[in-house]
């Protein structure tokens, strides 16, 4: 009945009426998008242009911005040791935490996919750290767990090892923060689990019939078919790890200490902008960060044809 009614209406609709309707629809669409449009221009595009301009000025919130050309950028790259220090801390953090988190996530997802009992329960338990790991509360716990009298040293003493204050030591504090990040592998694990479920079982069966070993099946089937998921996790992981702030701020002393070992890129930006009120300089730092992230993302997508494998049958399978 309805189908008939629809086709009847379509055939009766005259071109002019249709164009009126499409105009109405366009107006309605922009009305629906109005909040987002206001936000897009007022809180994204406008501020981006403003921040580009501010990055070319000396501005402290007290006096009007004073145009100084690219001096901020020159200073960032030639005269600012804290920029290089923050870049070093952040790069080390990203290089360690992102691959470790993905490896853990993949290993655990594979283990959970072997048909063990109570998968749902484990999935829940493994996800809980991702759920709370970004909070101030857990960062505080971390600071005490790796402190001198913390649980981690108690654990080491069971094996007769002498611990130390891992959080106060500038050589080790970053590794505790990396640990906090790796601890949150649960969300990546869930994405891998969903990816594993999409691999057609026939592929494994065919490979078994051909006598492929488990390692071979992993290398030749599982890994290639998961590469799109790995790419996705890598991009999102790098972007979010590069912007890490809370754990460094709380586990460190909030000013980059001890000895600037927790001076994350975003912390440096925050200190420049909101502690020293070098607003123009902070804007320049933000633009440098945007360019670094854009380059990294571009690099990953540009190299994907060498290592990311899109299986044609996956859509249908």
């Amino acid at each position: 009945m309805r189908q008939v009614a629809i086709s009847l209406e379509r055939s009766l609709a005259r071109p002019r009426r249709r164009s009126v309707r499409s105009l109405q629809e366009a107006v309605a669409a922009y009305a629906f998008m109005l909040p987002w449009l206001v936000g897009f221009f007022g809180l994204a595009v406008g501020p981006m242009a403003a921040s580009l301009y501010l990055s070319l000025t000396d501005y402290s919130l007290l006096a009007p911005p004073h145009f100084i050309g690219v001096a901020n950028y020159v200073r960032i790259f030639t005269q600012d040791p804290s920029f290089y220090q923050s870049l070093r801390v952040t790069t080390l953090y990203v290089l360690l935490s992102v691959p470790c988190r993905l490896l853990f996530a993949l290993a655990v997802a594979m283990a959970l996919d072997q048909g063990i009992r109570a998968v749902g329960l484990y999935r829940t338990i493994y996800y809980i750290p991702s759920l709370m790991g970004g909070s101030v509360a857990v960062a505080l716990v971390w600071k005490k767990v790796f402190g001198y009298d913390g649980v981690f040293n108690h654990f080491l003493s069971l094996f007769g090892w002498q611990g130390m204050d891992w959080v106060a030591n500038p050589k080790t504090v970053l590794y505790t923060i990396v640990g906090l990040s790796v601890w949150q592998f649960g969300s990546a694990m869930l994405i891998f689990l969903a990816g594993l479920k999409q691999i057609p079982a026939e592929l494994y069966e065919a490979a078994s019939v051909d006598g492929a070993s488990r390692v071979r099946r992993f290398v030749s089937i599982t890994l290639p078919l998961l590469t799109p998921t790995i790419l996705f996790n890598l991009v999102m992981g790098i972007i979010s790890s590069f912007q890490n702030f809370t754990s460094g701020y709380i586990i460190g002393d909030g000013r980059g200490g001890p000895l600037q070992s927790t001076l994350f890129y975003t912390l440096n930006l925050y200190l420049q902008g909101f502690s020293y009120f070098h607003m123009g300089y902070a804007a320049a730092l933000a633009w440098v960060m945007l360019i670094i992230l854009a380059l990294l993302t571009w690099l990953l997508f540009a190299t994907q044809r060498y290592w990311v494998f899109y299986f044609d049958g996956q859509e249908k399978g």
Binding site: A44, I239, Q243, T266, G273, A286, L290, L293
Partner: peptide, 14 residues
């Protein structure tokens, strides 16, 4: 994909 730091300072000023 846009890191919010790029808009942070002008947003604060607004």
């Amino acid at each position: 994909m846009l890191p919010f730091h790029v808009t942070l300072i002008p947003q604060y000023l607004i």
